[in-house]
Each structure stands twice: as C-alpha cells, then as structure tokens.
C-alpha cells in the first residue's frame, strides 16, 4: 500500500474539530525518496493505461499520459485518504471533468484498496464496473461520475458547500481538460466558487493543448486562461504538470494555506501523450489503439529505455 507523510491513513489528530494542523502536514519540499516514488507511480499509471487499453482495444492514451504526474502527486502526496475506506467522510475528494482519463485513475484506486486489483483485468468487459468514463455508483473510490464535460467543477463546489454545512473540512480537487474551458457551466461554477469563498476547492487544468478535433487554440481559443480565472476571483498558479517535485510542493502549500478564501486554480502545462515519443510528436492520439510492436516500444520508452526507430512507425490512424 502507498505510504507518504500526507496521504497515509493516519487518524485525524483533531478529531471532530476537523482543522488540519501544521504538524499533520509534511514539509513543503518533497524528499528525493518522495520524488522517486511519485515518478515511479506516474510510470505505473502509464504502464497500466497501456495494459488496460489493450483489453478494450481503443482508449484515451495521450489524454491520460498528460495527467499521469498529476494523478500520482494527488493520490500519493496531496490527498488525505484512508486505505480501504473509499467512503471515509473526511477524505479529500477528486473529480474529473475530463472523465476520459479514468483509465489512469483506476489503478491508483485499486492500489488504495478501494476495490480488488483483479477488476482491472476486466476493464470495459461486460459486467465489469470500469468503463472509459468513471461511474461513482459502480466504482468504489470514484467520488463523482463523469462523462459529460463541464459538470465537475459545479459538483465539486457542491461538495465544498455540503461539507461546510456538515462541519467537515476536506479539500476538493477537480481536474479539468483545457478543451473543457469551452463549456459555459465551468464559468458558472467558477463565479459561484469565488462568491462562496470556497478556499478548499482546487481546480486543476490539464493544459495539454489538444482536444478531439485538434489544437485547443485552433478549435476554440481559451487564452488568456490564467487571466480569465483571476478575473473570476481565483488564486492562479501555473506549473510544469510533469514535474512531480514542483507539483507536490505546490499542492502542499495549497493544503497548508488555511487562510485562503479564494478557490485556487492550478494550470498544469503538460504534453499530450507525455512519455511516449511518437504520441508527443503526433496529434491524433486522443483516442487510439496500439499494435503489439508499438505497445512494446511504448512500454520500453516509459521504462526508461532508449526509444528505437521502430517507434516512429506507430500509426494509430
């Protein structure tokens, strides 16, 4: 089971008081061991994504690869979770506007003991709860269903409001696609979250630059994105979304800052397809399928072996 200073299944030291104390939190800067652990977990996300999509025969490789470090940092450093207790009421929540990256989340949920790992082996098969998009009624550990883009930030805000009424203090992380910024409801929720001073709501934009029909800024421009969030009353941070040390430091700071009354938006600059050279270089991998030889090359590259020329022959089209 995963163990880190923050994310481990430690009891709440404040009991019913629910206020996180500084000593409960790890220092802001992650240790080299933590960084190595998070990098290994990000590799695990990519390898499992390849393994699971091979079962379905088609899937969202590149959309998942762009947020592998985000998944790893959130689930193994930032979030307060309890192993085997997916419904622990004081847990931090994670919602995905870009639900199509769920294939990368499932292995982490299994790792946390929320459901048996064997379920992964039947990904997308009839009767298996794990589909391309996450379903909270079927998959323990999925905090909210996704699939229609644009709803998640509203639902996350609702969790903040409900937690506030129930006297619970947890953080709510909502990962949004950059194409998702085109949905009007995102901005309804952004306006409302600032109005409600939802300081424990953290939006993360996976700014990988692509959506299904091409480059985000060609399909429908969203810049200046940071200015938009600031104008809506959010505290904005821009970060390299593949640098686990930077991500962990930022998320730790956000968690420690109990005086923040603004919701926080993390714009994570990422590469769609990060970790597999031919996906990074070619558009069109939003949905794809790997031939066996391409799969082997991708795995080798993720495992840190030099990329061979055969990789470039990969063609998902």
């Amino acid at each position: 089971m995963p163990t880190t200073a923050i994310a481990g299944p430690a009891p709440d030291p404040m009991g019913a008081g629910r206020t996180l104390t500084p000593e409960f939190l790890a220092p802001e800067t992650p240790t080299p061991e933590t960084i190595a652990h998070l990098e290994e977990r990000a590799r695990h996300v990519r390898l499992e994504t390849i393994r699971l999509i091979a079962i379905a025969k088609v899937g969202h490789y590149s959309s998942t690869f762009s947020c592998a470090e985000l998944f790893a940092t959130l689930y193994y450093d930032a979030m307060r979770l309890r192993h085997g207790e997916p419904r622990w009421p004081d847990r931090d929540r994670f919602l995905m506007g870009k639900g199509h990256a769920a294939v990368g989340l499932y292995p982490l949920l299994a790792d946390w003991g929320f459901f048996p790992k064997e379920l992964l082996d039947g990904y997308t098969r009839l009767g298996n709860p794990l589909g391309d998009h996450p379903d909270m009624t079927k998959v323990p550990g999925v905090d909210f269903s996704s699939g229609s883009i644009g709803h998640a930030l509203s639902a996350g805000l609702g969790m903040v409001m409900g937690g506030r009424m129930m006297g619970r203090r947890f953080d709510v992380y909502v990962m949004l696609g950059d194409g998702e910024m085109q949905e009007g409801q995102v901005w309804e929720a952004a306006m409302a979250a600032a109005h409600q001073k939802a300081g424990n709501l953290i939006a993360i934009v996976d700014r990988n630059g692509y959506q299904l029909d091409g480059q985000v800024d060609e399909v429908m421009g969203i810049e200046p994105l940071a200015d938009k969030w600031r104008a809506f009353g959010w505290e904005v941070h821009e970060v390299d979304g593949h640098d686990v040390a930077a991500l962990a430091t930022l998320f730790r700071r956000l968690k420690q800052d109990k005086t923040r009354r603004k919701p926080a938006c993390v714009i994570a600059r990422t590469l769609k397809g990060k970790g597999v050279g031919y996906m990074e270089r070619e558009a069109g991998w939003h949905l794809g399928y790997l031939a066996p030889e391409d799969e082997a090359a991708a795995i080798a590259e993720i495992m840190g072996q030099p990329a061979g020329s055969a990789i470039l022959q990969g063609d998902a089209q």
């Binding site: 009421p89 909210f144 509203s154 996350g156 609702g158 409001m161 409900g162 409801q185 929720a189 409302a192």
Partner: peptide
C-alpha cells in the same frame, strides 16, 4: 446559473446533505 445549481446539488448530496 441553473445548470451549476443542479450539478452542485448533486455534489452537496454526496456529503450526506
């Protein structure tokens, strides 16, 4: 913002409210 209201209500309901 009716759509935000309905989705947020769903989020609220997840917390036992």
């Amino acid at each position: 913002s009716e759509q935000n209201m309905v989705s947020a209500a769903a989020g609220i309901a997840t917390t036992g409210v």
